[in-house]
Write a protein that binds this DNA or RNA. Structure first.
Lengths: 132, 132, 132, 132
DNA sequence: GTGGTCTAGACCACA
DNA sequence: GTGGTCTAGACCACC
């Protein structure tokens, strides 16, 4: 079964980010297993009707962050998971996102409980290998 | 003690965003009370060693979202708190922040439980008008 | 025929306001439909012979009030119509315009009846998707 | 009975505008009659705790638009009403305000009927010599 | 002194 | 090519 990636046109997230996120999730959820190949840059670009540069950029970032490996002439494969950022660096980055969420919660006058509930729902939806 | 704003150089958040967030927090936490003035555009720009336009952009956004009011020739003042956005619009905006947090969590391979815990800590710290 | 925007030099309204108003009308009248793109910041700036920042400021306001959406690197698009502001906030904003009209009417010594009549005419002209 | 002017601190309208508007209304409503004197610049500035320049500027505009006359060494008096703008010019100016109101009505998705009703209320309230 | 608007031009991220 | 951010500096209205 081929791993499929979908681009949401209207999304605020840039296309290359959407690709990165979906591959990341595929690996995290186990839908993509170590050693498995992902679509070639050109093929995925054709499928999604986007610029190959955009796919290449996404894959480059995935290689950089340790999710993919490239084998010259053969394509991209799911890498053995390794951490590229130190724990401290990862927490610093995630804390910026947490801060922003807390700020928005205050700014929009929403109950923290409501935020936590929505966050948990989102985590559940994204962690199970979607049947969709 | 005067209300102070600090810009973090290494942050991914743009300067004007950092100003918006900190004033928002100041108002939400009660550190800034209704009718109180905030530093003038030029003064804050001098303090932070940034361009006045950058401060003006941040303040304009705060006026639009109902946190500040302006009196031409006199300055910006903390506005009476009011609900500007519909519930649907507020959820739409908060969901963008939640999505970003979920994506980062997966991308950085951090346990959702850890995120939720950190978020709860942050809420506690920010919702009680800290002694700080 | 492409959607065109015109700037009136002698107007008291600032340029960016004129752009905001005309795009708003275009969307409200249906001349611009959902998903359609508006001229790029740079192109419109060239056409109107104004600074790109001025266009950007207008577009940013239109995004904030829910009329446009942005896709970085691709442009601005007409957003699906949604209610962004609470009823109270909308009345607060419209009352500012009403106040200004009443003040001008008194200052210019014009009969209120004449104002009401002109206003009604204007509503009729603008609310039916004109053949123009 | 002295003619009193009140300044609303939180208003978006500049102070000098508020003075101009209130004197204009006083004349239009008949509360101030031809030949009657208005408070001196210095006295009004003291009363309102504002800068005398601000009062002077307002009075200058009222003289310019024909509502007041000045008699050297004696003060300012309500002038015999005369029109300083041509009818066409007055309509052009008022039309800008009408346009803005129509735009806001479209932008905020408010029923024209509601606008007309609020406008009429406002006219009524402002035309009768307020007992307040 | 204050804010509001506009220009010119730079650098970056994204497609 | 697109938008997003920031700087530098101008001119105006208002206090």
């Amino acid at each position: 079964m081929a791993f499929t990636i979908r681009i949401v046109a209207g999304s605020t997230a840039p296309i290359y980010r959407q690709i990165v996120d979906q591959v990341t999730r595929g690996v995290a959820s186990g839908e993509l297993s170590v050693g498995e190949s992902v679509p070639s840059v050109r093929q995925l670009a054709r499928e999604l009707v986007i610029n190959p540069n955009t796919v290449a950029k996404a894959y480059a970032e995935l290689v950089d962050s340790g999710f993919l490996e490239t084998q010259a002439g053969k394509g991209f494969f799911v890498a053995k998971r390794r951490q590229v950022y130190t724990k401290a660096e990862r927490l610093r980055r995630i804390d910026e996102s947490i801060d922003q969420l807390v700020n928005q919660t205050l700014a929009l006058d929403i109950e923290p409980e409501e935020i936590v509930q929505r966050l948990l729902e989102r985590f559940e939806k994204n962690l199970k290998p979607a049947s969709e």
